[in-house]
Amino acid sequence: MDFQLTQEQRDLRAGVRDLLAGRYGREALRASTGDPSGRVVDRGLWRELGDAGLFALRLPETEGGVGLGMPEAVLAFEEAGRVLLPGPLVATHLAAGVVPGAAQGTAVVTARDLDGGLVTYLGEADAVLGADGVPAGTPVRSVDPLTPLHRVSASASASADPYPCSYRSEGSLLTAALQVGSALRTVELAVRYAGEREQFGRPIGAFQAVKHLCAGMLVRAEVARTAVYAAAVTGDPGEVAAAKLLADEAAVRGARDCLQVHGGMGFTWEADVHLHLKRAWLRAEQWRTAGEAEEALAAELLASAG
């Protein structure tokens, strides 16, 4: 099986990267964190993403979509993860063809993808995937300033798992792609800072301990990326579960190690690394937690052994 990217896939990734670089660079990221309205979803950018086909990427052409597959989707979502683009990207993508306006980016669709009755972006959503209308919710303080949370009533979140396995699996894999993008970005941030910051007359990147941190970050990120790409091609449930586990670890540990490379600077509001860590923590709980992924992977391994 050939996992090399085609020229069309490389062009897709480059196009998404260029779009996001022009519309959601670091200044836009920082502006989002300081928006006094508390709203973090840029409706104009959301429509641009719809026009670019991000949400309708896997929708058949006969239904107005792009007609591509999951391998192309994870490439696009990896780029969104690199820039920490806020908003319920995965839910809106899954809602294409189901919720009016989702494919075009004129509707923001969130999902009940967290435990404990928590819903992300509820206050800015036009719909909740698989629900009738948008339920009322109570704002809850979020670890990530760009991922607002609401807690909905027990009746609104009565089902332990409101989504079929297909949604759960696809949501996990797309979230894993976002995590991979974040993990790769923290590698870049760590390497750049290690080359700029000097101690004892030398860049700190010249010291063995810092080299080891950066090398470990890169290995975890690349292993996770390979697992996500492979799962996108095969669609195997066990590989999807493994990809989510590896991507969550790469994003969380990568951000922690990046913070370590930055030293005290990494704990300040001026650095971006803390935003990557906070988003990675939250995404690790979305669609499939580590415990759930481990159970799914164990079930697949037992089934294949039997």
Rank of each mutant, 00 (worst) to 15 (best):
residue 219 V to F: 06
residue 204 I to H: 04
residue 94 L to V: 14
residue 278 K to W: 10
residue 58 R to L: 09
residue 8 E to R: 08
residue 278 K to P: 01
residue 112 R to C: 12
residue 274 H to R: 15
residue 210 V to H: 03
residue 14 A to C: 02
residue 301 L to A: 11
residue 86 P to G: 07
residue 31 A to M: 05
residue 145 P to R: 08
residue 78 E to H: 06
residue 113 D to C: 14
residue 116 G to H: 10
residue 275 L to A: 08
residue 69 G to T: 10
residue 216 G to E: 07
residue 305 A to S: 12
residue 19 L to E: 03
residue 17 R to I: 02
residue 133 G to A: 05
residue 11 D to N: 12
residue 113 D to R: 05
residue 230 A to H: 10
residue 142 S to Y: 09
residue 117 G to S: 10
residue 29 L to S: 07
residue 179 Q to V: 00
residue 177 A to E: 03
residue 168 R to H: 08
residue 133 G to E: 09
residue 69 G to P: 08
residue 92 T to M: 02
residue 17 R to G: 00
residue 164 P to D: 14
residue 154 A to F: 12
residue 66 V to I: 12
residue 128 V to G: 08
residue 189 L to S: 06
residue 167 Y to C: 09
residue 284 A to Q: 13
residue 176 A to N: 08
residue 43 R to L: 06
residue 252 V to Q: 13
residue 226 T to C: 09
residue 288 R to F: 03
residue 142 S to R: 11
residue 137 G to P: 12
residue 245 L to W: 06
residue 301 L to I: 15
residue 48 E to N: 02
residue 142 S to G: 06
residue 34 G to F: 04
residue 122 L to H: 09
residue 220 R to P: 00
residue 227 A to Y: 02
residue 241 A to N: 11
residue 49 L to V: 05
residue 151 R to K: 11
residue 112 R to E: 15
residue 197 R to P: 00
residue 5 L to R: 13
residue 45 L to C: 07
residue 235 G to T: 03
residue 280 A to F: 05
residue 272 D to E: 14
residue 127 A to E: 06
residue 112 R to N: 08
residue 178 L to Y: 06
residue 182 S to P: 01
residue 81 G to F: 07
residue 123 G to V: 04
residue 93 H to K: 06
residue 292 E to H: 04
residue 49 L to N: 04
residue 21 A to Y: 04
residue 256 R to H: 09
residue 126 D to M: 04
residue 244 K to R: 14
residue 276 H to W: 08
residue 150 H to Q: 12
residue 38 G to E: 09
residue 274 H to F: 10
residue 4 Q to K: 13
residue 114 L to R: 14
residue 137 G to C: 06
residue 21 A to R: 15
residue 192 R to W: 06
residue 92 T to E: 01
residue 110 T to R: 04
residue 168 R to I: 15
residue 85 L to Q: 06
residue 52 A to P: 01
residue 208 Q to N: 04
residue 253 R to P: 00
residue 119 V to H: 02
residue 264 G to Q: 07
residue 228 V to Y: 00
residue 14 A to T: 13
residue 34 G to K: 11
residue 108 V to A: 03
residue 155 S to H: 13
residue 249 E to C: 07
residue 284 A to V: 00
residue 279 R to L: 12
residue 225 R to Q: 11
residue 32 S to V: 07
residue 213 L to N: 03
residue 248 D to G: 15
residue 200 F to M: 11
residue 3 F to Q: 10
residue 193 Y to L: 15
residue 110 T to H: 01
residue 253 R to L: 14
residue 135 P to K: 11
residue 210 V to T: 09
residue 46 W to K: 09
residue 131 A to S: 13
residue 119 V to I: 15
residue 2 D to Q: 10
residue 102 A to L: 03
residue 248 D to V: 05
residue 143 V to W: 05
residue 160 A to Y: 08
residue 17 R to L: 10
residue 113 D to L: 07
residue 163 Y to Q: 11
residue 178 L to N: 04
residue 8 E to L: 15
residue 257 D to V: 00
residue 7 Q to N: 09
residue 244 K to A: 07
residue 207 F to T: 02
